[in-house]
Computed example of a mutant assay.
Amino acid sequence: MTVRTLIVDDEPLARERLRTLLAPEADLHPLAECGDGQEALALIARERPALVFLDVEMPELDGFGVLAEASAAAPPVVVFVTAWPQHAVRAFDASAVDYLLKPFTVERFQRTLARVRERLAAPPGDLRQQLQHLLQELRPAVPTAERLVVKSGTQTLLVPVDAIDWVESAGNYVTLHVGREQHLLRETMAELEARLASRRFARVHRSALVNVDRIHSLSPTLSGDHRLVLRDGQELTLSRTYRARLEEVLGHPL
């Protein structure tokens, strides 16, 4: 049996990695991929995939929103793929078969495929208990970053995480804004976001990650986003897509 598979992730490199890992699997056929929630809804309705690798935080509509709005008829098996371990609790109610935490190893991906195949071959079981075991696996997997190692010419700098004001995406690099200094780090935004998941950092835009202790004020805009001002006067946009994550870190609704 060939399993029709959909890949949904807003980062092209993440989609490419999943596609590469699935290539040797003869029974799993990647029929399509996309980078936002609305397009995912349309593809699920049109293609009726049996398996979906689904990112959580995406433009337009997040992964949980996709599942909430998708047709209940013949629902696909879902594997959530995300940089945020805390979303696993919500995955219980979404009946996900697994929760793949970025960055993941090939061995971890193979365990995911084993769970997918078991789920496809068997009637529904107690997925809540299964995901509780997965949470135990996830918790020690993400180290807490205290400082970041940055190359600057012939020097190696140790940048304390708490000294960072905000982080700007630059393709496969990120720019660390530390006071008046800027440091380029060879790491994707998703990878750094995962490393800082347990710190007081929040993704506020596809291209911006902020130390919430540096936020001075927030004000709504006519577009439904928020204007975010840091203590040094730097202005950023809080996208609607990432509002829930900032509210979670702040512990207060906006």
Score class of each variant (00 low, 15 high):
Q234G: 04
R214T: 14
A170K: 13
P160G: 01
L120R: 14
L138V: 10
E39R: 14
R119I: 08
R108D: 00
S219E: 06
L131S: 04
L228W: 02
V106N: 11
E69D: 01
Q86W: 06
N172S: 10
L54D: 05
P124A: 15
L176H: 09
D213C: 04
V178Q: 01
I164D: 01
Q132S: 04
A91E: 05
H226K: 13
V159I: 08
E118S: 06
F92P: 02
P24C: 04
V178C: 06
S169Q: 09
M1Y: 01
L131T: 01
A23M: 11
Y99Q: 12
K102D: 06
G37V: 06
R19E: 10
V178L: 02
L135I: 12
R46I: 01
L185N: 03
Q136E: 07
R200P: 03
H226E: 11
V8I: 13
L184A: 08
T241A: 15
Q136N: 08
Q132V: 08
V56N: 03
R48K: 15
E107Y: 10
V229M: 06
F109R: 08
I164K: 01
V210W: 01
E168P: 09
E118Q: 07
G179P: 05
L6N: 03
R227Q: 14
G65C: 04
L157C: 03
V178H: 05
M189P: 05
P76S: 06
P140T: 04
L228K: 12
E181K: 13
D55F: 12
D232M: 08
D232C: 09
G37S: 06
P123E: 08
R203E: 13
T221Y: 03
L148N: 03
C34A: 00
V89P: 07
V210Q: 00
T154M: 13
F80L: 08
R227C: 14
R227T: 15
F53D: 01
D55P: 11
W84Q: 14
G37E: 05
L184C: 06
T237A: 07
A50F: 11
L218A: 15
A202W: 05
V3S: 05
D162N: 09
G125Q: 12
E39L: 09
R214V: 06
V174R: 14
R117V: 07
R243Y: 14
D232N: 08
D98Y: 11
L158H: 10
L218M: 13
R231W: 13
A42E: 08
V78S: 09
P124C: 03
P75A: 12
A91I: 15
L28Y: 09
A88L: 13
D98M: 13
V149M: 07
L134Q: 11
R19C: 04
P253E: 15
Q110V: 11
V8E: 00
A208S: 09
L51Y: 07
I7V: 15
Q136Y: 02
L13S: 14
A91G: 15
C34L: 09
R111F: 06
Q155S: 04
G224W: 00
G251N: 01
R243N: 07
P76A: 12
E25H: 11
A244E: 09
R147E: 02
I44Y: 02
F109K: 11
L184E: 01
A88N: 10
L176A: 01
T5C: 13
L113Q: 04
E57W: 07
R186K: 03
T154W: 08
